[in-house]
Write a protein that binds this DNA or RNA. Structure first.
Length: 159
DNA sequence: CTTTGCCAATCAGGCTA
DNA sequence: TAGCCTGATTGGCAAAG
């Protein structure tokens, strides 16, 4: 939205751009960047000794192109950073929802287990009551009851 | 106060002599 | 392997909304 802030630019038309970077009031940074500019424009590095000559050659096309590329890279980088943050937040929300679903499932299954336990215990008690009627002792181990007509009331029928 | 844009410094990885 | 090159990242600042 906002636009050029720190640069007063005069004529940015055909390569000839006079852009003056406003010195930051704080004066903390703005150390001139070493911009390698080779005479032939080959793009090759310039030895440090010659570099000083071309320091902060802010009027050069080389400089402007470099700035423009960097500005694009900055935009790209910050967009990615933003996207990553959004993705992370979305993932957090998804995991929270999944957690809630799983908690609900645990609750349901616990309830089901409780009901089944109760049924089992009730059944077990009924069995115990039928196998050992009141006032009757269990037969002694060595004494086999060979009476076939005896009706033992156990419900243990295995089909 | 937040957003947007720019600048400069620095980092990281590929390339070359 | 050292030095260079370039895109990516980061911090600071200013202006606009």
């Amino acid at each position: 939205m906002s636009k050029p802030s720190q640069q007063r630019s005069t004529t940015d038309q055909n390569g000839v751009s006079v852009i003056q970077t406003q010195a930051h009031s704080s004066g903390l940074q703005q150390v001139p960047q070493l911009v390698p500019v080779s005479p032939g424009g080959g793009g090759k590095a310039v030895p440090p000794s010659k570099m000083k000559k071309t320091i902060a050659d802010k009027d050069s096309d080389e400089y402007r192109q470099r700035r423009e590329r960097n500005n694009l890279a900055v935009k790209k980088s910050r967009m990615r950073s933003k996207q990553k943050a959004q993705d992370t937040q979305q993932r957090v929300n998804e995991l929270k929802e999944e957690n809630e679903r799983l908690e609900a499932k645990i609750k349901l299954l616990s309830k089901e287990l409780s009901v089944l336990k109760d049924l089992f215990l009730e059944h077990a008690h009924n069995l115990a009551d039928n196998v050992q009627p009141q006032g009757t002792e269990a037969p002694s181990p060595g004494q086999n009851n060979n009476n076939s007509s005896n009706n033992n009331n156990n419900n243990h029928k295995h089909p």
